[in-house]
Simulated assay, not measured.
Amino acid sequence: MSDESGLWLLAAGPAGATALYWALYRYYRNTDKSHAFEHETEVQAQPVTGSDRKVDTISGTQAKRIGGDNVYAYRTRVSRDES
């Protein structure tokens, strides 16, 4: 009799873990409450509008670096916290 009474305790572990996993999955995934955008939303396609206006042109650039950069001035880039 005592062997059978402890058997439910062994089955409660995996059953409880499965129930907890399923509850957390349902809580965080919200698969029953999520909005199915592809099926519930209608989007009217329209032709693309705009223009191809040229804004700026840079040609003949020979500089290998940007003027005013502070790559080698690491003491000015990184300040020490004197707390």
Rank of each mutant, 00 (worst) to 15 (best):
Q62P: 05
E42M: 07
T31I: 06
D69G: 00
T49I: 06
G6E: 07
G50M: 05
Y28L: 04
A11M: 13
V71H: 02
Y21P: 02
A19P: 05
S51A: 13
R26F: 02
A19D: 06
G67A: 07
N70K: 13
D52S: 13
I66H: 02
V78S: 04
T18E: 10
L20E: 09
D32R: 14
A12D: 12
L20C: 08
I58D: 03
K54M: 10
W22A: 12
L24E: 09
V55C: 03
L7F: 13
V71K: 02
D81T: 09
A11L: 14
L7N: 15
A45I: 07
L7R: 15
L9P: 05
R75P: 01
D69P: 01
I66N: 06
V43L: 12
G50Y: 02
L24N: 14
K64R: 14
R29L: 06
F37P: 00
R80T: 04
R75D: 02
A12V: 11
R75A: 00
A11D: 10
S83Q: 14
T61R: 15
Y72E: 00
T61D: 06
G13V: 09
T76Y: 00
V78N: 07
D56T: 13
R65S: 05
R77P: 01
F37M: 13
R77Q: 08
S59C: 05
T49Y: 03
Y72I: 02
F37G: 07
A36E: 13
E4C: 11
Y25T: 10
E38G: 12
L9D: 09
V43D: 07
E38S: 14
V78E: 01
V48W: 11
S79K: 13
Y28E: 11
P14G: 07
R75W: 04
R77F: 01
